[in-house]
Structure formats: C-alpha cells, structure tokens
Amino acid sequence: MIKLFLAITMVGLLIPIAPGGNPEHAAPKRSITVPKPDDPGSGLPPGAIQTQTTFATIKITIDPLGKPLGAYQFQLTSPDASFKVLGVEGGGHPAFDHGRPPYFDPVVREAGADRLILAEYALPRLDAEQLPSEPVLIARVAVLFDQPIDADEPPAINLLLTTAGDADGNKIQANLSHTLQIPERPE
C-alpha cells in the first residue's frame, strides 16, 4: 500500500510540470540559488529606508578573570537565524593589533544561517604584563537583523567560548559578553 501511495504521489507531481503550450509564455522560472536565501532579495531605490531591518554592531568582550589573555577562540550565532554578518573587525586593543582583522571564515553562511568562528592571538613579542587581564573588547561584528529591534527585548545572540589561553598558551577560564549597538542618526 505504501508503495502504491508513493507511486500515485509521484505521478501526481508530474501534473504541474507537464508541458503543453508555448514555452515562451510559460511563467518565468525562479532561479535556483545555493544556499537558498531565507528572504527574497529586493533592491531599494536610493534614499529609501527599509524599516523592517536593523543595522547593528555586536561588540564582544572577554573577561580573562585576572589572567593575562594570550589568545581566544569563540563562536557567534543567532538562535533564530535572524541576522546577517556584514563585516568583522578587531576590538582595537594594541596587544591584538596585527594590522588585520581577527581570523574568521568570510563564507559565513551555513545551512541557512550565518555562523562565525572568531579567533586571534596576542602579539607574540609581548610579555604577560603587557597583555590584558581585565575585560577587553576583542571584536566588533556588523550585522543586519531582518526585523526591527526592540530595546527592551533585544534579539538573542549566542556566544560560545571554545578556548582561551594565557601568555604561555595555557588554557584559562574566561567569560564572554556582548552589547548591541544600533547607530543613531546624527541631529
């Protein structure tokens, strides 16, 4: 019976795609894209402001709990896949300033959602005394939320610390936190 059901389903699926007319007047095919976008693209005319989305910067801070921070690695996701990553920069602390942004995979899209793994190490010439042991801003991630942001109920953001190390490369405990900054229009 199951097989019969499958068979009927299969032939039923053929009905909408059976040709029979002038192909020039068929409905235009939707182009196939990989990965499948989760929202349709639509260009905006210059000057238009899309009120359904919000640009923001996620500022990520790490607290090495009093130990000199030598390296960190963490993951950033949105549980409801509600943001798109638009750019990544470092936190600006001189101990981690290699003249380039932190390491991350620029192809951020995976299974329909953006995911970031960020990692960086301190300048190897620095001693432990020169490394931050207090909470320090380590990364700024520009994102686009596909919804207006309610200040009282900010969207959920997941931060997962993979590892952190001290000046000698030994693993240490550390806490990650973040703030969400939405740029304000100047007066």
């Binding site: 899309q50 989305t53 640009f55 638009l86 990544v88 380039r100 991350f104 620029p106």
Partner: peptide
C-alpha cells in the same frame, strides 16, 4: 585606523544589503 574585513555573499543579496546600508547613511 579601523579595518573591517568583508563577507562573500550571493551577488543580488550583497547588492541589496549594500543599498540598504547606503540608504541608512552607513
């Protein structure tokens, strides 16, 4: 100096987001 490393995206989507960012004054 602030260096922002860019993201590779599907072309239409990247264009759309760029236009939005431009309209927002970013």
């Amino acid at each position: 100096r602030r260096q922002i490393r860019g993201i590779i995206r599907e072309k239409e989507e990247a264009e759309r987001i760029y236009n939005e960012a431009r309209a927002h004054g970013l």
